[in-house]
């Protein structure tokens, strides 16, 4: 305990892409964690699944497309990306309509994933 042993970390992304700056801050954190060679997995939960939509017209808001940034995750060696299956169903989004390959998880699987990780950051 208290040492810098490698921890399995889960970053939970819960915010819609352009509601405030929280979603962008979380994505920046994901990329920084990967750059620091952390063992990080991502879970897009609730409104957070909207971050993964293709063709976001973010320039209309003077913002950068979060989907485009997220599509580069495999280049950062972030390969374990999970999404909330119930949220995809609620928004009628097909898993193959997203900017990168993801693994949809049911509620019980989300609980199991959270329990299995050493640290959980939610933002």
């Amino acid at each position: 305990m208290g040492t810098s042993t490698r921890k399995r970390q889960l970053l939970v992304l819960r915010h819609a892409p352009y509601h405030g700056a929280a979603a962008r801050a979380a994505v920046d954190l994901a990329l920084a964690m990967a750059a620091f060679e952390q063992d990080v997995e991502l879970l897009f939960l609730g409104d957070g699944v909207l971050q993964l939509l293709k063709d976001q017209a973010a320039d209309a808001l003077g913002r950068k497309s979060l989907g485009r940034i997220l599509s580069s995750l495999p280049l950062y060696d972030i390969e374990r990306v999970y999404v909330d299956a119930a949220a995809l169903a609620r928004f009628a989004i097909a898993a193959d309509a997203l900017v990168l390959p993801v693994e949809p998880l049911a509620e019980a699987e989300i609980h199991a994933l959270m329990n299995a990780c050493d640290q959980l950051v939610s933002c």
């Binding site: 040492t3 921890k7 950051v121």
Partner: peptide, 21 residues
Amino acid sequence: GGLGQLIEAAAGADRLMTFGG
């Protein structure tokens, strides 16, 4: 400071606690 300061601190901690958001 940069996000690396959060990552470094969390790596050396027993618990990372998130408040708000």
